[in-house]
Design a protein around this nucleic acid. Structure first.
Length: 819
RNA sequence: GCGGGAGUGGCGGAACUGGUAGACGCGCUGGACUUAGGAUCCAGUGGAGCAAUCCGUGGGGGUUCGAGUCCCCCCUUUCGCACCA
């Protein structure tokens, strides 16, 4: 056997050749089907899911592997607890990422993706994940995206898909639509041309209809709080009021505004509407028209990204006035791009005294600033030199009969007053916008719609799915100014499914997030061709028991998946409305204290490490380098510690088996063993993998004390404990121990609390809170005995001048003598 | 600006509900075995001090018999969202 790791291995190491052991067991798992789940028969299903990766050309990133291994350990542990664990794998292979890369290297994504997938599969297999390879998913496969298109049609059927004009980033030089991340500092990332805003007709999903439910359900989910908070913030529920301001012009429509501070309505000294507001044209009067038109043209040209990031206030007066329903006075109506059409009503009442943005705007344009909220003891007429936004301790002033009220009371009372006049009512607003799923791109599933001059937008009949993405050579954006598929008349010209007249396919493709919003439903049903998911299998396996993935998807992917699941639930396809019972986000891996990047050349390439150290050592090191949910710092030098641990594990098992030490085990060692069984069993479910590994190392140190060979009762359970981390060596040693079944079908070692506890323990003795000594005492020692034992120690009693005035005794822990 | 984290030896990190700070590992120092050692094994390793002891968890206050952990103020750092009314 050739050992490439050490030129002259020590006696103990002879025989442990990770690459040979790992190759052997990977082959065996495949041959025997160790990791294949019988989804129909499994009596005790457990679905351990990890976020599927985008299969990049560079191959598996160590961050991916970190996540996968973390999930794998969890899944393997659940299997050892007796569950039938299903751990599938797949590829999120559509999207702008792949498309851009294909453009860059001048290859076609349809050629590139299968290569990348093959490479990913190879890398994942050699990492020893417990993946059921019979259930692979590839989002670019027509057998998969057929059902992505089906999902779209279901949403359409429910009235949750609609079309509207929306702004996109447009590069006038590349003549193409850009994603937000392709806009750098207001310019196209490729050619540096300033990006413009264009309006295209696009498909949206009405996720905002589900805002309240998406928010409310969060409370009952077993997700990390940080992720839930991110979702709550994204949904952005805010309570306030909608208030109408009548326009001073015959027949004009009133302007409706949304505010969270109705208590400040007496301080509203002007109104602002967004440049895109539908009333802009009718509000603008004669002499102001030129200025308004100029302003509108200017903001229309500006790209979405810079417009939202610049904070300097610009605006223009319409010439029109509205009446403040609280004060009855007339206030001017302005237009400014600091008001967003997408939020609220696209119009605001400006209260410069109590809103920073309004204050800035008022300063720039010399508009009146009125104080309507005071801090306790402040003079109501005091001048305002910055917006006073405090509302906890604020008192209402200059607001007629509402003066003296707290902000909270005034909110209620003023809404009631406006409501009575028919000028306002309470409203809840959400930040969450509808989900735009149209992409003017090539590399995605075509949206299954056909436009007919007579019948309008007609859904492709479900029987006609999939609408196959054609293999076209010119998927690159060019001067034509349309999405790539729109250049292929032979593809988009089809008869209308309703009337048969020649019609035109939708040439946009759907967002990649739609592909990943339902893939977990597909996995258990892979292989079933006539439906997206089988209802019996789905009932058995879903919702997902445990989901692990990156926090970069804390918001969008998880929210979209929840939304799609709710809709399918409402339609009766599934009987649950939340897809992931438990979700945990893993941390980020950095290297030597710095972020990894290709340009810095400090990227960890898993293949290299697996070749050098073996997959088991690499896996275990990844889990050991830091807390799983926080990530950690990858340092090459540190892997050796983990490798040494595996070497010792190998040596201990071999010496126990070869020396036929079949005795009961040393009591001290057995105590530590049972403490370790408990610790590892507690740590794995809470993803505290680093401390689980440390505990096993600690046990190894105890095991190795003294000269004697270990007995098999001391080492055998350790093989089981280590198996989720280092599955290959565990299988090999399990076989060496004489077992013929897989270690993963052998269960988890039994914890015996009687064996784990010692009759004596170390009592920490403190004097005035400072530790002054440790005493080895019986576990059930009484307080009095403990005190006398402590006082008998000169090194302790010397810190006390007399008898202790107060004694704090924590049984099993410490004694504190206060003098 | 708003929101979420995080600051502990030379380094990565332990310390679950306040209760022996620094587990485990890397590195380092010394030793053993060796032709050799980047292998293996043994011992040591927060700082100061010969020692008793003192000081130590970003900084400053506080609560407590006792604070890395709880409360208040501040600093640094990182991630996310960025004019959301």
């Amino acid at each position: 056997m050739d050992n490439t790791l050490n030129q002259t291995p020590s006696d103990e190491q002879i025989g442990y050749d990770p690459s040979a052991v790992e190759g052997k067991w990977q082959q065996s798992w495949q041959d025997i089907g160790t990791n294949t789940t019988d989804v129909a028969a499994a009596p005790d299903p457990y679905y351990a899911l990890m976020m599927f990766p985008y299969p990049s050309a560079e191959g598996l990133h160590v961050g991916n592997l970190f996540a996968f291994v973390g999930n794998d350990i969890y899944g393997r542990f659940q299997r050892l607890q007796g569950h039938n664990v299903f751990e599938p794998f797949g590829y999120d292979a559509f999207g702008i990422h792949s498309e851009n890369y294909a453009l860059k290297v001048g290859k076609h994504p349809m050629d590139l993706i299968p290569q990348n997938i093959a490479n990913f599969r190879r890398q994942v297999q050699r990492s020893g994940l417990m993946v059921d390879w019979s259930k692979e998913v590839d989002t670019t496969n027509p057998d998969y995206y057929k059902w992505t298109q089906w999902v779209f049609l279901q949403l359409l059927k429910q009235g949750l898909a609609y079309k509207k004009q929306a702004a996109v980033n447009w590069c006038p030089s590349c003549k193409t639509v850009l994603a937000n991340e392709q806009v750098v500092g207001g310019a196209c990332e490729r050619c540096d041309t300033p990006v413009e805003q264009r309006f295209l007709s696009q498909w949206f999903f009405r996720i905002s209809d589900y805002a309240e439910r998406l928010l409310a359900n969060l409370d009952s989910l077993d997700w990390s709080e940080t992720t839930k908070t991110a979702q709550r913030n994204w949904i952005g529920r805010s309570e306030g009021a909608e208030i109408s301001f009548p326009v001073k012009k015959a027949g004009a429509e009133a302007i409706r505004v949304f505010t969270t501070r109705p208590d400040t309505v007496f301080g509203a000294t002007y109104l602002v509407v967004a440049p895109e507001h539908p009333l802009v044209a009718s509000l603008t009067t004669g002499v102001y028209r030129t200025a308004v038109d100029q302003y509108l043209a200017r903001s229309a040209k500006q790209d979405v990204v810079t417009r939202k990031s610049s904070t300097e206030k610009t605006g223009v007066f319409t010439g029109a006035y509205a009446t403040n329903p609280a004060t009855g006075s007339d206030i001017p109506i302005w237009i400014s791009d600091y008001v967003l059409m997408e939020y609220g009503t696209g119009a605001i009442m400006a209260v410069p005294g109590h809103d920073e943005r309004d204050f800035e705007f008022a300063k720039v344009f010399g508009l009146p600033i009125v104080r309507v909220v005071c801090a306790q003891g402040e003079e109501p007429s005091a001048p305002i030199d910055e917006a006073f936004t405090e509302n906890e301790r604020g008192i209402i002033v200059n607001s007629g009969k509402f003066d003296g009220m707290t902000v909270a009371t005034a909110k209620r009372e003023i809404i009631a007053m406006l409501d009575e006049k028919g000028a306002g009512h309470p409203v809840v607003n959400y930040r969450l916008h509808d989900w735009c799923i149209s992409r003017q791109r090539y590399w995605g599933p075509p949206i299954p719609i056909i436009y007919c001059d007579d019948c309008g937008a007609v859904p492709v009949p479900e029987n006609d799915l999939p609408v196959v993405l054609p293999h076209v050579e010119d998927f690159k954006p060019d001067d034509s100014g349309v999405s790539p598929l729109a250049r292929h008349e032979d593809w988009y010209r089809v008869p209308c499914p309703e009337c048969g007249k020649m019609a035109r396919r939708e040439t946009d493709v759907s967002d990649t997030f739609l592909d990943s919003a339902w893939y977990f439903l597909r996995y258990p049903s892979v292989g079933i061709d006539d439906k997206p998911f089988d209802s019996t299998i789905t009932k058995k396996w879903l919702p997902v028991n445990s989901y692990i993935g990156g926090n970069e998807h804390a918001v969008l992917h998880l929210l979209y998946s929840r939304f799609v699941t709710m809709v399918l639930n409402d339609m009766g396809f599934i009987d649950f409305e939340e897809p992931f019972k438990r979700f945990r986000a893993h941390g980020l891996i950095i290297r030597n204290g710095a972020k990894m990047s290709k340009s810095k050349g400090n990227v960890v390439i898993p293949d290299h490490y697996i070749e050098k150290w073996g997959a088991d050592a690499f896996r275990t090191y990844l889990m050991f380098l830091g807390p799983f949910e926080e990530g950690g710092d990858f340092r090459d030098a540190s892997i050796s510690g983990v490798k040494r641990f595996l070497d010792r594990l190998w040596a201990s098992v071999h010496s126990a088996v070869d020396s036929q030490s079949n005795g009961p085990g040393d009591p001290d060692v057995m105590r530590k063993l049972h403490q370790t069984i408990r610790k590892v069993g507690d740590d794995i479910p809470r993803l505290s993998y680093n401390t689980a590994v440390a505990a096993m190392m600690e046990y190894m140190n105890v095991l190795r004390r003294g000269e004697r060979a270990s007995s098999r009762s001391e080492v055998e359970p350790l093989v089981q404990l280590a198996s989720p981390f280092a599955p290959h060596i565990a299988e090999e040693l399990w076989e060496k121990l004489g077992h013929s079944e897989s270690v993963f079908d052998a269960g988890w070692p039994k914890f015996d609390s009687a064996l784990a506890t010692d009759e004596r323990f170390e009592l920490a003795v403190q004097v005035n809170g400072k530790t002054r000594g440790k005493l080895s005492v019986p576990r059930d020692i009484t307080q009095d005995d403990a005190v006398s034992a402590a006082m008998a120690e000169e090194s302790i009693s010397k810190f006390l001048s007399g008898p202790a005035k107060k004694i704090i005794f924590v049984p099993g822990r410490l004694l504190n003598l206060v003098g």
